[in-house]
Design a protein around this nucleic acid. Structure first.
Lengths: 222, 222
DNA sequence: GCCACGGTTTTGAGTCATCAAAATAATAAA
DNA sequence: TTTATTATTTTGATGACTCAAAACCGTGGC
């Protein structure tokens, strides 16, 4: 039984949901899953029970859901495809990084392994996609770097933007126009709790202030 | 209402079915449609009635189905996408022409207009795909050439292979290995009704004999 | 002109994925 | 502890799409 696009999307959402979980708890709650997929909560429950039936997830009623090794393998495969496709569309086809998400979202379910392999080859076996998200290897391994957000990194120290953890097109365009894409070097000059904002010095010493919410989505390496 | 992949496939099948019709009759019979789509005849009937309901086709019970202008526009769009994708996969990604059909079949329904436009641009607004099939323009026009099959073209006269009207991977590999791809120059030396075969002289004066059924799928320009 | 046969349509049913809304469980508040 | 709030699960239904098999044309053969 090859998984349907729907199943692949559930697994992917659970996978990334797990990474967003704080602390030792490992179960993704149904509500979070449902809203991540844009479906009604009841639908998520029904579907997750079916996934548990086929051994892809572990389901604890009223607590949440977790991937089994089999489910994790499939999820990593989908994520790998998604990120390779995004990088391909940007790197090879010259599309903007804020307009490739939807295409990747669709293509990840349908293109052949051969085509994915060809993309991987043309891109030189990349480890990160245009947003700095790590690309799982064919066997599901994720490269992981120790990164900090702009809310936690040291002040007045040059840091390199490594990853942007938001796919929203408007946000991505903002990042791009302010030269905050992965690879850029910046410094955090000041954080202000009261105004919920962060002051930055960017390329050409350009000053800018961004909200804490946005700052938390920019990951940097020191 | 954007059409589902299923609807797009029905329209595409009717579209190419129409071109395969001989003479003045213009209706694609249900049986042909069903077998082209690999579905049960009853399913085709049900679906075609729904398509007629939404104004995409004209349906005459027991006679067949024909596209309306609206349906034809949609069908041409899908075919354009399919053929651009195939050409892109071969030309840009270096895939073999016998292995791109399935990917194109899936991608044609999901990739964005922007991505298609980008492919078209990268390919230099091509008129024909790797099989020599014409690529409809954005407004649905088809370039058409006066072509003959190897069964009807003049004998002992150099002709250029222009189109291969079969997507079967094994057949395409045969064509390729015998240097009969679109663009190659060949000559028909002899036709034998009795043995149902055609004798050819190909590249480097190499002689070969192919069956009439295969010969009818090779279109040439004189 | 009748009948048989191939193609077509109907019928009845099933799968997958979804929703809204009612019922229920867990949790936080009073 | 009892209640109120919020999250989750059930229930009942729907919309696409599909099949198998029974019923139904329509035409060619005799």
């Amino acid at each position: 039984m090859l998984p349907s696009s729907t199943v692949e999307n559930y697994l992917k959402a659970i996978y990334v949901g797990e990474t967003h979980l704080v602390g030792g708890q490992k179960l993704v709650p149904m509500g979070q899953l449902a809203s991540a997929l844009g479906i009604a909560p009841g639908t998520a429950t029904t579907m997750v029970k079916a996934l548990a039936e086929s051994g892809l997830v572990t389901y604890e009623p009223y607590n949440g859901v977790r991937l089994t090794p089999a489910g994790e393998k499939l999820a990593a495969r989908v994520l790998r495809r998604h990120r390779l496709i995004e990088l391909f569309l940007v790197q090879v086809m010259g599309m903007n990084w804020d307009e490739v998400h939807e295409d990747a979202e669709q293509m990840e379910h349908v293109v052949s392994d051969r085509l994915i392999e060809r993309m991987d080859e043309m891109l030189g076996r990349p480890e990160f996609d245009p947003h700095g998200d790590p690309i799982p290897t064919p066997d599901g391994q994720l490269a992981h770097r120790a990164l900090e957000t702009l809310l936690t990194c040291p002040l007045n120290t040059p840091v390199t933007v490594a990853r942007v953890t938001d796919q929203d097109a408007a946000f991505l365009r903002f990042i791009e126009s302010h030269h905050l894409k992965p690879g850029e070097t910046i410094q955090v000059e000041e954080r202000d709790e009261a105004s919920d904002s962060v002051k930055l010095k960017g390329r050409d010493d350009q000053r800018m202030t961004i909200g804490a919410r946005a700052a938390s989505k920019l990951l940097v390496s020191t």
